[in-house]
Design a protein around this nucleic acid. Structure first.
Lengths: 404, 404
DNA sequence: CCGGTTAGTTAGATCTGTGAATATAGTGGG
DNA sequence: CCCACTATATTCACAGATCTAACTAACCGG
């Protein structure tokens, strides 16, 4: 076990915007458009402070006034609406999975400017080569978008599996074993010449699900399913990472004593029983025709989902069986985290979420705790890119973090 | 479902000490004794700020200098040690369970000055009467300790079951159904005339496990077993409460599909399968002689634990079976929260912890995530009083909370 | 006794946020 | 059309916290 002494003694959650400047930028960004009065309510600051901070943001070209708000029925000066200047800055988000590399270019307002999807590194890829490729493709992405590279603040990189905060992964599924121990972050920073943030895919997805999921949701979680299953917790816009950056590993909780062996070494893991790979294996065993898809990965899972949605009863039974197990994971998240909202996201839910959603909803509402507080479960409409977008947004947020 | 609009818009975790005053008091309290230099390192403040804050604390009689620290081998002025003035303030902690009322009087340094244990309210008790009794007994506790009542800052009250933050419980085990919806906090404040903090027993226990569990543990959880099973998460000395104050309800995660029905309405709950009540029921069914103990509760569980520890193989088998299930809960906590340390606490672990500990340890270390980061599992030596002490400590901490 | 070393303080500057008063921009009534 | 009325936003003077820089305090070893 390499003992890691992280330079910044991380407190278990990501750097909350200590500066009121960052706090205000975050609020405007997640609301889309906001007045100064609302900012005083949201931040707890007094009006003069808000005025001062906002003026500097406008002077710096990060925020712009954008017309008047709806005047109240009674009268009074209408609120001046503020908005992030989208073109002020940019960040890149990259999601590495077993068979895909997803790139997004996100503007300062949090909008996706460009989105690339490249066939992934493939089995047993060499991390050094992948890093080189990411650096090149990131440059191409920025160039092809016509964005001034000087305005790009940095890159957020997400990968599956448990990781050492801002270093690399500590273990990985069979096809990515060469990534274990590889110093992803520092190698990327060297190649790119810009700050890089490394994050777990599920945690990033929690940051990436559209912040505007109703204003009064301050505690929410993402259940993320790609090749693996993970979850992330978001508190007031800050993700919870745990002591070592591995919080939310719901895919490797044991839901069946004596269950099947998992690549992680355990038995009865949720992922081994009901993850996409397990679904594909069962479908193959049942003799389903998955077409020309590769022997594993999300593509094969998507094929099964399409069969199920088009009425194939065997495919549907297999997926509903998976959903029954995953519902246990969802219930565990609700019980352990006590969230107001659970968002289903990631590539697997993007293709099969409509089958999973009602089953998970029903399970959560059947537990007292879910029912008594009305925990909501919803599907993320951008599940395919949630992790990459989340990585980018986390990088955006870190801009104003205290750098003591 | 009564929609509760909490006065303070709580962010999902308890008020972090925003004032550096509170931050410094907390640090000194948890360290026991500390110098100004160490405070600069721990808080991130510079020396002059620490000097200023500490001077005011000394002037206010909350902190005292207490001799010199060990001089470094090389030379230089030895550090002046600071210490909380224990007699400066006091707080009361009360733990209500099905069959006991536990009182602790805690001084400003966090030390337990007095401890009372009273036979509990009994089945189906009237909340109003219990509140009256608690008010009277709290007065007696303070009086008999010779503490000036004016120095008592407030009372922390913990009870089992999910609660609405600072209001009352939303559901309860069969013997406490009359507590559901009862406005515990406001009624207690009216009777006592001092601030009352209401908290879940497991969450409070997380706050109560001695803070000095090694200085570099910033993310830890408590697994609490009394009549029920719960858990609490502590981040840098602040407990995580979740959106509604119900985080960590590990007792009602489903660990066996189609398992036995639980009082909460679910099936296969950890608590229903392996909680103390289930252990007692199994022992009774197996014909074990539990002596003159009441038909349920921790007392009967303790009798079984004593049998097991004294070599009764049937009792041991029953408890080891329970431990195997509870180990799943412990693993879930480790995976979801990613903690550095898991403390077993509460009355049930106080009597049977030595049987549970190795089984839980082994399970956690058998999961990659536990093994790769070396999650520690330990037994709290003050399990009986952890919840009450935790309630008191949380009240102590809230003293310096921002009251905007 | 004196340089070396670490701990802690004082003094002054800066920055942040506050409160009170004021300016701005609309609504609706006479 | 002018005038209260209302809500939004800004200005200005001040209080507080925290920083930098320079200084004093206490102890070591020779």
């Amino acid at each position: 076990m390499q003992q890691v002494s992280d330079s910044s003694q991380s407190p278990g959650y990501d750097p909350a915007p200590t500066s009121s400047r960052g706090l205000i930028v975050d609020r405007i960004r997640s609301a889309g458009t906001l007045s100064r009065v609302e900012l005083t309510q949201l931040t707890g600051l007094k009006a003069p402070s808000v005025t001062a901070v906002v003026r500097r943001l406008i002077d710096d070209g990060l925020v712009a006034e954008t017309g008047r708000g709806a005047s109240t029925s009674i009268g009074g000066k209408p609120r001046t609406l503020l908005q992030i200047r989208a073109a002020a800055r940019y960040v890149v988000g990259v999601h590495l999975s077993e068979d895909h590399l997803t790139y997004v270019l996100v503007d300062y307002a949090g909008g996706v400017v460009a989105r690339w999807r490249r066939d992934g590194p493939g089995d047993d890829s060499d991390p050094e080569q992948v890093v080189a490729r990411v650096a090149i493709e990131t440059g191409e992405l920025i160039a092809s978008s016509g964005v001034d590279p000087a305005l790009v603040l940095g890159l957020g990189f997400v990968c599956p599996g448990p990781l050492i905060r801002n270093r690399g992964v500590t273990s990985a599924p069979p096809s990515m074993t060469r990534w274990v121990g590889f110093p992803i972050r520092s190698r990327l920073e060297e190649r790119l010449g810009m700050p890089v943030l490394l994050e777990n895919d599920a945690t990033a997805a929690a940051a990436g699900t559209r912040l505007t999921t109703s204003h009064d949701v301050s505690v929410m979680a993402a259940l993320f399913m790609s090749e693996g299953i993970g979850s992330g917790l978001r508190l007031n816009g800050n993700v919870y990472q745990g002591a070592h950056g591995n919080a939310g590993e719901v895919g490797h909780i044991c839901v069946q004593i004596g269950g099947p062996r998992c690549w992680c070494g355990g038995t009865g893991c949720l992922e081994a029983l009901a993850g996409p790979a397990a679904v594909v294996a069962k479908a193959r065993a049942a003799g389903l025709d998955l077409g020309s898809h590769r022997h594993s990965g999300v593509a094969a899972f998507a094929a099964i989902a399409r069969l199920a949605l088009s009425g194939d009863s065997r495919a549907e039974a297999i997926i509903r069986d998976s959903a029954a197990w995953i519902a246990l994971g969802a219930q565990t998240i609700a019980n352990m985290y006590d969230v107001q909202l659970l968002v289903l996201t990631g590539p697997a839910f993007a293709v099969a979420g409509t089958i999973y959603l009602p089953i998970l909803q029903e399970r959560i509402l059947s537990s007292v705790f879910g029912r008594s507080v009305g925990t909501k479960v919803v599907l993320d409409e951008r599940g395919h890119d949630a992790a990459a977008i989340g990585a980018a947004l986390m990088m955006l947020k870190s801009e104003h973090a205290i750098s003591a």
